[in-house]
Design a protein around this nucleic acid. Structure first.
Lengths: 206, 206
DNA sequence: ATCAAATCGTGATTTTTTTCTTTATTTAGT
DNA sequence: ACTAAATAAAGAAAAAAATCACGATTTGAT
């Protein structure tokens, strides 16, 4: 599977998926590319090109089967093989992500949270326990977790990242504004909130 | 200003900016394109191309002045003209964003939060007050706010968005997984967490 | 049965983005 | 001074992404 879907495409696929979920809730069975395109403000041939990647044929004058599209998107994006992850940093952002149930349906399984604040330790968030950060290396090993979602304050980001790397974490989804220094075998994904906002802001708001 | 910086570029510019902030904290005055490129795992000529957009000349064998780069990035991305915004939805994500001080230094000024839970109303978060959602139309008008950051639960997203649009909000930064239906004059920016994660996940984790 | 409109599918074109290559410049070492 | 290495600058080439354009098909209306 996962034959190198470009970033932009997988981004759009999740948006399409959201629309499919909504159509299913409303009991609508078919959807056309212009409908989707208009909703997202993109070109309709773009939508059809994306759908071709899914091997999902549409029908002229009718459109695509909503249910089939939803299934193909899930299959293509690998929602099936769930990946386990830890949230590191149990501030508001960490808690928000722990409660974000969409993760689960998109194949990301949050097993636990971590923090260095003794007051937070042992709390339950959305049925997930908060552990003291010192327990992390052991749990990484026992549970075979490779992904950490980093939501600590900026000033602790590098230090905590170093600790994660020592603990054999292989993928860091970085929600902090720090640009982490990591060895080449560790992959970082910067969730760059301001970058995407600024694009939005610069384009229209002068 | 803001002569149509492409999304990818403004994304990279904020990452560069983060690195500049770090270098300044460490008292380092110059930085070279290969240094930055290695840190971000991209091509060094890419970095130079981006810097050319900033009209910021480097010096061979030395690199660029960190301070100058930081200033040009801020100027180009318009950190100077701060934009006011409301956070709509005071759950964990809303609170996390309200506490995210980086917004301020990036030119986004959160004026207040809103919620429909009477228990939350009048609380202060990072010196910003939480108002009942019913107060929003009036405050939009009085303060001339055009941007709303939407952090309500998915099932309320469209309904709240409709209310925002009625209230003359012009830009919605959508953190919910719903794909909003809006009239053409209202701009939506979907902060699609799963889309970016899946890209990260699909690429390397099989 | 015929026609018009909607829609898919797809190849061509254009635009955008990234990478490659070469040349010129600067610094440090000999 | 000369040489070597690092680096910027800039143009060329390649790759990727988006848009356009048009033929084919299906449906519903007349």
């Amino acid at each position: 599977m996962s034959k190198n879907i470009p970033e932009k495409v997988s981004n759009r696929l999740t948006l399409y998926h959201s629309i499919m979920v909504e159509y299913i809730e409303e009991g609508i069975e078919t959807i056309s590319s212009p409908q989707i395109a208009q909703r997202l403000g993109i070109d309709d041939s773009q939508v059809r090109k994306d759908f071709k990647l899914l091997n999902n044929a549409g029908k002229c004058r009718v459109g695509y089967m909503v249910k089939d599209l939803k299934d193909s998107i899930e299959k293509t994006l690998g929602f099936a093989h769930a990946k386990d992850a830890f949230i590191v940093g149990s501030g508001h952002l960490g808690l928000a992500l722990a409660k974000y149930d969409s993760f689960n349906s998109y194949g990301l399984n949050i097993l636990a949270l971590f923090d260095n604040d003794p007051q937070k330790v042992d709390m339950l968030v959305n049925n997930k326990q908060i552990f003291h950060i010192s327990k992390l290396p052991n749990l990484v090993e026992r549970l075979g977790v490779e992904i950490a979602i980093l939501t600590v304050p900026r000033k602790n980001a590098q230090q905590v990242a170093d600790f994660l790397i020592q603990s054999k974490i292989k993928y860091i989804w970085n929600f902090t504004p720090a640009v982490l220094k990591v060895p080449p075998e560790v992959k970082v994904w910067n969730e760059n909130l301001m970058g995407s906002f600024l694009q939005f802001a610069c384009k229209d708001i002068i």
